[in-house]
Design a binder for these strands. Structure first.
Lengths: 103, 103
DNA sequence: CAAATAGTTCGTTAATCTACGAACAATAAA
DNA sequence: TTTATTGTTCGTAGATTAACGAACTATTTG
């Protein structure tokens, strides 16, 4: 079934958020981590903390991750609900049979 | 298995290309079309032909589509090989069990 | 060959993105 | 309550992106 309307907008927003090397790496990093404080994330990247914080904010805004204040630290993780939604949308996109046969 | 190295770069490039409403729509449009001349694509969007041509070029550069000159026209379609690659990479990304359980 | 058709490329402008230091909260510890 | 520690927000500068008209290329048709 073809993606359209809100679903199309949503998958585009997910794709856009994932379309930056650092953000994509943050996602794959979070996928495999149990503990995920800001500092843990920051220390695996060469970027300034302001930059990492900004990327985390974007991923949070689009819903792929979530953050939780814990003492003076902030714990980040994948947002499972939206991660599942993203999974479904991309699945739908790629399960569409490729009709075009021009080339 | 975690995405890394070239695969991580590749999925990020795919995501980036898909992260624009017009480009994502072009992809879903191509998925369901048999014939796919430039003009057919252009006429379903409000944008100038220069703009559409530019988006098609980006999608072609990243490998998701391909174009073929046919007389004075240009036929576009999904690049099946790379589309399959994209499918596999996203599949791998989303099949990673979500380990993080912080929030 | 001239004119029409179909797209691409060029040049430019406006907007968005990226990155970072510095300033600014908020909590914890001394 | 002062001082660290942990992050976020602000302001800014540079880079990239997006959009479009105009000019250009190539093919087809008259």
């Amino acid at each position: 079934m073809k993606l359209k309307g809100k679903n199309l907008e949503q998958i585009t927003l997910f794709a856009k958020a994932m379309g930056h090397p650092t953000r994509m790496e943050i996602l794959t990093f979070l996928l495999e981590q149990e503990a995920c404080y800001f500092g843990d994330i920051h220390e695996v990247f060469p970027n300034a903390k302001a930059t990492i914080s900004q990327h985390l904010k974007e991923l949070k805004n689009v819903g792929l991750i979530q953050g939780e204040i814990e003492g003076p630290k902030v714990k980040y993780c994948i947002n499972k609900d939206n991660w599942t939604l993203a999974k479904q949308l991309f699945n739908e996109l790629f399960s569409t049979p490729v009709k075009s046969n021009c080339c």
